[in-house]
Nucleic acid binder design. Structure first.
Length: 231
DNA sequence: TTTATTTGACCGCG
DNA sequence: CGCGGTCAAATAAA
């Protein structure tokens, strides 16, 4: 099983290291929001045609909390996420100077001809930066005690590529050095017709323990099933 | 030199 | 026309 690291960062840095390598391609001030939104896409978009993107924005209410929205799924092979010893796929670099047209080609390849945003998985993750020492910022208290049980979740994709949350072993059960972050998962889609599609939108809220070393914070993620349904 | 970030321009949609 | 998303040239970093 592979893991996504939810990495704490200090202060104003972006605390969102999910194990993938992202490349920033845009930055926008959002109307009505206090903080701008950063736009990232997978580093391997060109080399592997990976269409995953994400948007990172500081929450209005608490500047120590980041809202991260994931759009699309990774179809790439990320070297950092490979098992040690697993041979790394050689990626040929081709057509780096692609024109806008070729982007549509990629989309069509992925979605079978329908460059429709409804085909994306959309996941929103709200990350609280634990080490953010803002005077007014409340001390991040792990929320797993408040609403434990079903709210400590691992997440995986169902066979129909829907993003799902499921109950996970409590942090105490993990004897390893990987610490499960208390992620509260709110499925704010819940069968509502956000659009006329099966548009998944999940929200995670994470309050990471203060004292933890950033390198030890892991969100256990069922990447096996995740990868298993990538086209 | 290669790769990533910054940042204003551009574009589509409502 | 405004807003949100993306592009791409300039710039920075490795």
């Amino acid at each position: 099983m592979e893991q996504v690291r939810a990495c704490e960062q200090s202060g104003l840095e972006e605390p969102v290291n999910d194990g993938y390598s992202w490349r920033k391609y845009g930055h926008k001030d959002i109307y009505g929001a206090k903080h701008p939104r950063g736009y990232y896409r997978c580093t391997h978009k060109n080399s592997q045609g990976c269409l995953a993107t994400r948007q990172v924005q500081r929450t209005d209410t608490d500047t120590s909390i980041f809202s991260v929205m994931y759009l699309g799924r990774h179809t790439c092979v990320q070297a950092s996420r490979l098992q040690p010893g697993q041979p790394q796929k050689k990626v040929e670099q081709h057509d780096k100077k692609r024109k806008r047209k070729s982007q549509e080609t990629l989309i069509n390849f992925q979605t079978g001809g329908h460059a429709n945003t409804n085909d994306y998985d959309t996941t929103q993750v709200v990350l609280r930066s634990p080490s953010f020492s803002f005077p007014s910022a409340p001390v991040p208290i792990p929320c797993q005690q408040k609403e434990s049980n079903s709210n400590i979740c691992s997440s995986h994709l169902t066979p129909d590529n829907h993003f799902m949350s499921s109950s996970l072993s409590s942090p105490s059960t993990s004897g390893s050095n990987s610490i499960f972050s208390p992620y509260r998962v709110n499925n704010i889609e819940s069968g509502h017709d956000l659009q006329t599609s099966d548009y998944d939108l999940c929200e995670f809220e994470s309050a990471l323990p203060l004292a933890l070393d950033s390198s030890d914070l892991y969100l256990d993620w069922d990447w096996d099933s995740f990868d298993g349904f990538c086209f």
